[in-house]
């Protein structure tokens, strides 16, 4: 579904990508893991036709990003690092705008359905400027789903969110994959990749240094030893219990 071969990109003298290869199977969640500045966003920007690669090739849904950018844009949806929503419009207007730009019939109904699906119906008529970070992110992801693009890029979808909002976003991503959407996710949070991804690739200094399922990655280290450790609740468990949410 997504195929990246020997991708290279430099900004002036700085080599950001030094030959990146990976493939993402249809309907799976693929996590690109890496620290800040590892080049995750650069990969996503090239795949979403916003940036041209210096060398190598990339294809999405069978279309080459350099040769057929318009076809690629019809196949994808990008949710960038910062929620790309219009603060002055209401949530409903944001959704209807994207539906109109995707040339779909009945934008109002599409907007209402998505508000319902993302538990935003009550907030739908309010300006987005009044939304919390989690609501904004949910709206952002909802906007990405309009027109059912087969591939979705989520660039650090939970950076800057509180734990509850993070779990809400995770839930939304899992539902996406369950419906057959291919998801490429970048993250710097290891637990996020662990929770969501079918396959995980680690991008480090412009190269993919490992790529595999969680089980495969775990086998790279010596086999587990049996140790007895007192089970302490994590701070996340405490926080979520106190504010009354279950960890899903």
């Amino acid at each position: 579904m997504i195929r990246v071969q020997a991708l290279e990109k430099s900004y002036k003298d700085l080599k950001v990508l030094r030959g990146v290869d990976f493939e993402v199977a249809r309907g799976s969640i693929f996590a690109l893991l890496g620290s800040n500045g590892a080049g995750k966003t650069t990969v996503v920007r090239i795949l979403s036709t916003l940036l041209k690669a210096d060398a190598g090739s990339a294809g999405v849904n069978g279309f080459d990003v350099a040769a057929q950018p318009a076809r690629v844009r019809e196949s994808i949806s990008l949710t960038g690092q910062f929620a790309a929503v219009d603060e002055i419009l209401t949530g409903r207007e944001n959704l209807a705008l994207v539906a109109r730009l995707r040339h779909l019939k009945d934008p109002g109904k599409i907007a209402d359905d998505l508000l319902d699906r993302f538990s935003l119906t009550d907030a739908g008529g309010r300006k987005v400027a009044t939304y919390s970070g989690g609501m904004r992110r949910r709206l952002d992801i909802a906007m990405s789903l309009i027109g059912d693009p087969p591939v979705i890029f989520l660039d650090e979808p939970t950076t800057g969110l509180d734990p509850e909002a993070r779990i809400e976003v995770w839930q939304a991503v899992r539902e996406l994959a369950a419906r057959g959407t291919t998801v490429l996710l970048t993250t710097q949070y290891l637990d996020e990749a662990e929770q969501l991804a079918d396959r995980i690739a680690i991008l480090h200094e412009g190269r993919i240094i490992v790529n595999g399922t969680l089980t495969e990655l775990k086998q790279l280290l010596p086999p587990a030893k049996v140790e007895y450790v007192e089970k302490q609740p994590t701070l996340e468990d405490v926080f979520l219990t106190l504010v009354g949410k279950d960890k899903r």
Partner: peptide
């Protein structure tokens, strides 16, 4: 700045 520009640019418009 807000990223909405990139959202529009990555759409088939």
């Amino acid at each position: 700045q807000s990223g909405i520009f990139e959202r529009f640019q990555s759409m088939p418009i």
